[in-house]
Nucleic acid binder design. Sequence first.
DNA 1: CCTGATCCTGACCGTCCGGTCAAACGTTTT
DNA 2: AAAACGTTTGACCGGACGGTCAGGATCAGG
Lengths: 204, 204
Amino acid sequence: MSSDPPRTRIQRRNRRAILEAALAVFSQHGFRGATLDQIAAEAGLSKPNLLYYFPSKEAIHETLLAGLLETWLDPLRALDPAGDPIEEILGYVRRKLAMSRDFPRESRLFANEILQGAPRIGPTLDGELKSLVDEKAAVIAGWSAAGRIADVDPWHLIFSIWALTQHYADFDVQVRAVLGPDRGDPFDGAERHLVTLFTRLLTP
Amino acid sequence: MSSDPPRTRIQRRNRRAILEAALAVFSQHGFRGATLDQIAAEAGLSKPNLLYYFPSKEAIHETLLAGLLETWLDPLRALDPAGDPIEEILGYVRRKLAMSRDFPRESRLFANEILQGAPRIGPTLDGELKSLVDEKAAVIAGWSAAGRIADVDPWHLIFSIWALTQHYADFDVQVRAVLGPDRGDPFDGAERHLVTLFTRLLTP
DNA sequence: CCTGATCCTGACCGTCCGGTCAAACGTTTT
DNA sequence: AAAACGTTTGACCGGACGGTCAGGATCAGG
């Protein structure tokens, strides 16, 4: 919406620290479960100083979510209708899994928002997200009709990719508990497994 | 742990009402985001009356979680080593998906707990859950080695089933936003898709 | 070195939070 | 009918919550 170029380097540094701290707290406890004192402590600032940079708890949360959806949908946007179908979809899976590995807190922040009924990004889901998915689903349906991939419901295929990749970020604790300490990095196993899964699903 | 047979029918009714209300509130807002006033209002009781039946907010939450894990793991326990491999796994998928459809709040309660780092059921994950999964993973690995299903990492296969089925409960709002109102019940499409997916994945 | 703008803080406010308690209300038992 | 028990409530407590404010510290430019 509004361009927000922080004037000074102090502003830049502190706003970054606040958003970083807020990401940690919001992603773990949800909006209502998070407290400004906790965010302030995590950011190394006093609570009034927090509110010097952001007008309210809501504003911090909104800033976080706004920046999130863009980067979150980028991997899907990059799905190329002109590319090789299976390689394109596998590429999307890999990019999405990499995001789960590299930005698990962002994934959990998003999960929290949806779990609570998407009170703040509901409209964006109905609008921007739906239209992007519809567009890419049409591409996949085209591949399907042309016999270049096996017959598959494009919408549920996309849901499958989301579910399978985000699971490793959102349920990280459970995954590690079940695998135990001696079975290597969960994400390595996940990548091999997901490539197998989607290859077998999509190969005609 | 302790057997808790409610003495009177009033106790039975009110305890049920409280747990029902608490499930609604905890599953939407997480433990810290939920308030006793909200639960009390939802249950049609006064806050002090709530605390007549349960000693604390924690106790309500614990009661909910304790009952949850049992029913949550039942579908996996029912996986029969003596049955037909693919039908057994498809049956598990169907049972788990049915739970997402019929008990979405329970699924979200569990998701919230894991998102927060499993502070209350961490030990249970390391113990009971891990050993059950290990046991069933061995069964699946046996099927795999015998050539009765295609080669697959059993642990990540189980993760896939969890991720794919629970997604439709936990991310229900997003799924419905993307599908729109005119594409029928999400769970019907999900069942067809998941049967296809796991059949293609597992058929040797 | 002065001055104006930016940055930061201690003290504070009203509200809501989880939880307590004594007393009143209902119901069952004798 | 009254004693005994189970149930419900209004009033209240100390602490934590989101947020405000006046003023002090710090920094930049002249």
